[in-house]
Every structure is written in C-alpha cells, then in structure tokens.
Design a protein around this nucleic acid. Structure first.
Length: 182
DNA sequence: GGCGCGATTCCCT
DNA sequence: GGGAATCGCGCCC
C-alpha cells in the first residue's frame, strides 16, 4: 500500500476530509497489520473555525495542528478517550486538521475487536477507532506519509459523499464539514 | 491555584 | 433519552 504524499494534505481541511474518504488507514503492531477504509471524516480549521481546537491559538495540546501537514494530531478527551486527526491546511492558514471518525475494517478485524474487549463495533466513532487500532498519545506527531506503524494509503474508489454538520460541537454548526461515504 | 467541561462511549431505563 | 466514567487542558481568579 502506497502512502499518500504530503501534498495531499496541503489543501483546505474540508477538501482533505472529502479526499480521505475511501483511503486506507493502516496500523502495524507486533507484526500484526490492521487496516480499514475511511468512511467518515470531519474538517477543523483555525481561528476562523469556532469549533476547532486551534480556534484560540496554539497551546500545548494542539501544537501539532500548527505543525507539518500529514502528521497525526491525537488528543485525549473525557478523561478516557483518544481521537485521531491528520494535520491538513492550505499554505496561507496557520492550522487545521481532519478527524478520522470511522473506518470499514479490512485486515486484522479480529485483532481490532479484541482490542475493544471483544466488541464488534469499531467503525462508528472516533474513540472506538483509536481503541481498536491502539492509537494513543504515543502516536502524537507521527508522520502518516511514511510506511511506518501508522499511515494512510490509497484505497478503493467511492461512489458518493454526504456532508452534514459536525458531531458533538456547539459552535460552527452552520458548516457542513462532516463527510461520510454514502 | 482552582474549576468547568469536552471533536465520547457505555449502560441503564 | 439520560447519566456516569474520568482527567488534562484552558481560562479565569
């Protein structure tokens, strides 16, 4: 599987979010490969996006959003969950990212279920996804354009995309920046 | 230094 | 449909 190159992520987060649908997220741990096709994403901007972690400028947590595109921005929330983003922004903007919310499992589905205490559901929520693929703070800043322990690669063509308001946010609900494979 | 709450999930009713 | 779990971050005092 060939990783997407860095130029892919040097665009508006919304364009990257759409573009990531149908791509493959790959994770390798202890010789086991887990992968799945990305089927839901959300775009987050910078100071212009009130729902974004980058809205009020750079902090210790969100600094990855201001760093090199194509790297992972992983954050910890609700005292127990991790969510994974890919840093993406067009040259002029100073920060941005795309939240990976769901995948359709391919390789290693059994291992992913095992990582979720035997639960079958691993494809319908951002924190379920990170738990299934064992993605945590250790992956903060990891380069997803290289064929390493965590990366994103080409995938199958998809038919169509639906755009909706982002999930679980209070502001910026006017933007249709949640994207799903129809 | 203290406090409120979150880009969530699970389990109960 | 609602509340608990659980804690680091971000903002205010």
């Amino acid at each position: 599987m060939t990783p997407l190159d860095r130029a892919f992520y040097s665009r508006e987060p919304a364009a990257v979010a759409r573009g990531l649908l149908g791509k493959r997220l790959a994770r390798k741990i202890d010789g086991i490969t887990m992968s799945g096709v990305i089927i839901e994403t959300e775009a987050y901007g910078s100071s212009d996006d009130p729902a974004s972690h980058a809205h009020r400028g750079m902090t210790g947590r969100n600094r990855a959003m201001f760093g090199e595109v194509g790297r992972a921005y992983v954050y910890f929330t609700y005292g127990m969950h991790y969510c994974m983003n890919v840093v993406a922004r067009r040259g002029r903007s100073d920060a941005g990212a795309v939240l990976i919310r769901a995948i359709r499992p391919e390789l290693g589905a059994a291992q992913m279920s095992k990582n979720r205490n035997g639960r079958a559901a691993i494809s319908d929520g951002p924190a379920k996804l990170t738990q299934a693929m064992r993605i945590s703070a250790e992956q903060y800043g990891e380069d997803l354009t290289r064929r390493g322990a965590l990366y994103i690669a080409e995938g199958p063509r998809i038919r169509s995309i639906t755009a909706s308001p982002r999930v679980g946010i209070r502001r910026g609900t006017d933007l249709l920046w949640n994207f799903k494979v129809k």
